[in-house]
Simulated scan of single mutants.
Amino acid sequence: MKLLTFSTLFPNAEKPNHGIFVETRLRYLLASGKVQSRVVAPVPWFPSAHPRFGRYAGYAKVPAVESRAGIEVQHPRYVLPPKVGMTLAPFLLAQSVKPTVRRIIDAGYDFDLIDAHYFYPDGVAAVMLGRHFNKPVVITARGTDINLIPQYPLPRTQILWAGRRAQGMITVCNALKEEIVGLGIDADRITPLRNGVDLQRFQPVDRATVRAALGMTGFTLLSVGLLEPRKAHDLIIAALPALPDTRLMIAGSGPERARLEALAQQLNVSGRVRFLGALPQTELRNYYGAADAMVLASSREGWANVLLESMACGTPVVASNVWGTPEVVAAPAAGILMAERTPQGVADAVRKLRENYPAHEATRSYAEKFSWDDTTAGQIALFDKILGEFRP
């Protein structure tokens, strides 16, 4: 079976962690030996890599073609105009990549199906491409594309248009399926296939040795994610005055860093907060394994991979009770769900976890139930069914 994997959420040489969950799922799918894929992962066009353009300069540095873990990845550019970009993005995305897709077919890779990730704009653009090239399309919904973007009328209309014309849809949790059904899509056309965790990459470490090497002392929390409002690192920082013996490490980069640093200063907890910046997964494993708990206070999550990554390293989690997270944190060995998304809610959940702290071995054992095997089998079965039914 030949796939064209299509998504703006895919790692590249400049942003190796960007959409890494899409790449990971694809790696396990390819490892089955039943699937081939070429990846088209567009990036916004930007005129220059000059430092004055800040974080946007990175887009200009992304190579046009690269190989990642033996997978060929093409990065065509698409124009995303300011202000009107969100409205026009699906059309501009589809038009920009048509020449790339045509070249892939002409070079001899006449793929069977478009495997698209993220509903808007990617899934909408993928359906446009499917109609143009006469190929079936499967769209995977991952979180914000369904739990936030449909609040805007025009994107909502386009999401419904794509959902009704795609040959299949996948959601990474049951909660997202229910939300799509609520938008007006037939439930029978939606297949929940949760993300797994890379159990080889994320494994327990020698905690005492790694803690000493990383300078961890006392009960230490780890928060992982972009420094942006949705990830709510501020709630965890604001919980520290109620947790006087607790330290916090924050792994991630983003526009909120200065505000978060100022909040830690204001609350007189800056001496107990360490900002680590963005970390590659190879380094992140050590922090997961050495921390006493990983905290995720997000306001929205489809399926938060960081939760399973932490558990796979033997470290329980404290998480907000949103969207697919209760499907991940579903046993005492996994950790605790917050009763409320507030600083007090974080503090209470941390204390509750400490009172009934699970054995690290039990947490790892819980994570081992979430291998990629079932997800891979589910994708292959769905793609086979669609290809058997599709009539060009």
Results as ranks from 00 to 15, higher is better:
L3Q: 05
S67C: 11
L193P: 02
K135T: 07
S371Y: 10
D115L: 02
G85Y: 01
I336F: 00
P11L: 01
Y59W: 15
V306M: 01
H18G: 03
W372D: 02
T376F: 04
A349K: 05
L3H: 02
C173I: 07
M128D: 04
V127H: 00
D245L: 12
Y357R: 04
I237M: 08
R259A: 14
G168N: 03
W45A: 08
E283W: 09
K385A: 11
D245V: 09
Y56R: 14
V62Q: 06
F390C: 06
A278S: 13
E179K: 14
P358N: 10
R164N: 15
E228I: 14
V35M: 13
V79D: 05
S253G: 15
R247Q: 14
A239M: 07
P358S: 14
H50K: 10
P343M: 05
E178H: 10
L92F: 08
E327S: 12
P150Q: 06
P155A: 07
G168F: 03
A94S: 09
A187D: 12
P136F: 06
D186R: 13
L296G: 03
G123V: 01
Q158L: 13
V197I: 13
Y288H: 12
N305W: 00
A264I: 05
L260M: 11
L30N: 05
E301Y: 03
P326C: 11
L176F: 09
L26Y: 01
K83M: 04
I104D: 11
D245Y: 09
P51S: 06
I114L: 06
A239N: 03
A60W: 01
E283V: 07
V269M: 01
L307S: 02
R102G: 09
A359S: 12
N268T: 12
A213H: 13
L240P: 05
N305T: 14
I380V: 15
G215R: 10
P332W: 03
I237H: 02
L160M: 11
K352L: 13
T157C: 09
F21H: 05
D186P: 05
T375H: 13
R25E: 13
R351F: 10
M338T: 02
T100D: 09
A334T: 03
R285A: 08
G130V: 01
V40E: 01
I237V: 14
A162Y: 07
L93H: 01
L214P: 04
A94P: 00
Y152A: 12
S37T: 06
E283Q: 15
N305G: 13
G163Q: 00
A312S: 12
T217A: 14
L92Q: 04
L276C: 10
E256V: 07
P11A: 03
Y78E: 02
G70A: 12
G225D: 11
T157D: 07
Q200H: 13
F275Y: 11
Q266R: 15
R131G: 10
P392G: 12
F46M: 04
V346L: 06
S32F: 08
R102E: 14
G254K: 09
I250P: 06
E23P: 03
A293H: 03
P136K: 04
G324Q: 01
W303R: 00
S7I: 07
K352V: 02
A319S: 14
K61E: 05
A297T: 00
F275L: 06
G378C: 07
P99M: 10
D374K: 15
F53D: 03
A208Y: 10
P82Y: 06
